[in-house]
Amino acid sequence: MTAPIKTAGNEPGAPATVSPAKKIEGRSLGQIAWTRFKRDKIAVAGGVVVILLILLAVLAKPIEALFGLDPDALHQDPDILDANLGGLPIGNWGGMSWDHPLGVDPLQGRDLLSRAIEGSWVSLLVAFGATVLSNTIGTVLGVMAGYYGGWVDTVISRIMDVFLAFPLLLFAIAISTSLQGGAFGLHGLPLHIMVLIFVIGFFNWPYMGRIVRGQTLSLREREFVHAARSLGARGPFILFKELLPNLVGPILVYSTLLIPTNILFEAGLSFLGVGIQPPQASWGGMLNDAIKYYQVDPQYMVVPGLAIFLTVLAFNLLGDGLRDALDPKSN
C-alpha cells in the first residue's frame, strides 16, 4: 500500500493485455466475453464473492438491525475484558464467544463481527465513489486528448504528467488532515467519506486518462470512425456514439481492478489515522487500532486484515477474469 496507485497504474498499464476485441460474425462482443468468462471458474467465484460483498455493504444497516448488532456498543463486563491487564479481551482468541463470534476489541469490548460488517459499506462506498470519480474525469479527458489530438492532447497530457509527478499519498494525508474539522458545510462521517472519495478519485484519474487516450488514438483511425465521419457525423456524435461504446470494455476491466486498489488506499489512509474517524468502524481504522496490540492480542488484526484481503482478492479475481474474457489474445 505504500504506493497505492501502482496497482492502478500498472496492471492495466500493460497495454498489450487490454486491447479491443475483434468482432466476430454473429455474436456480439458481450456474448463472446460472457461465454469466455463463464468458463473461468475462479473469476466466477470472485464475481460471486463481489456480489455478496456488495449485498453485505448495501444491507449492512438492515443486517445489523435484524441480528441486533451494534458496532459501537461497549461490552466491558468483567468476563469479557480484563481490567487488571489494561482492558485486554479475556480468552484465547481475542474474546471469541457465541455472543461475539470474532471476538471483541481491547479496552472497549466492541463486537468485531459487527464492526467488520459496518466497515464493509464504508470501504466499498469510498472505493466505488472514488473509482467513478477518477474514471469519469479520466474517460472524458482521455477521449478528448485522443480524439482531438493536437494542442488539446498536449495540454491534457502535460496535466496528466503533473498529476503523476505528485506524491499522491502525501497529498491525500495533507488534505484529509486539514479538512477534518469541517468544510463545505459538512462535518463528521459524511465529510470524511466525501474527502476520501475526492482525494482518492481526483488524483488517480490520469491513469485512466492515459489508457483511454491510448485506446481512443487507435480507435480514431479505425474504419467505422472514418465511415461515420464521412457520413457527416460531428465530433460529439462520434465521441459518444462511436468511440465510447468501444471503450466500455477496457473501462470496465480497469474499474474492476481500480476498486481493490482504492479499497487498499482507503484502508491505508484510515490506517494512518486520517481517513474514517472513530468511533465509526472501518477496516483500515480497525487495523490501525489492532496493530497496537499485535503482541498481546494478535487475533484482533486478523479480522480487518482478512476482510480487506478477501475483498481485494475477490475484486482482483473478477477483474482478471473480465480482462481475459474481453481480450481475445489471452489464453
Binding site: 461497549l74 466491558q76 475484558l81 480484563d82 481490567a83 487488571n84 491487564l85 489494561g86 482492558g87 479496552l107 472497549q108
Partner: peptide, 13 residues
C-alpha cells in the same frame, strides 16, 4: 466512570 476508566487502560492507567 468504570467504562471510561477501562477505555483509558484500566485501573493501572
Amino acid at each position: 466512570k468504570t467504562s471510561v476508566q477501562l477505555t483509558l487502560g484500566g485501573p493501572i492507567r
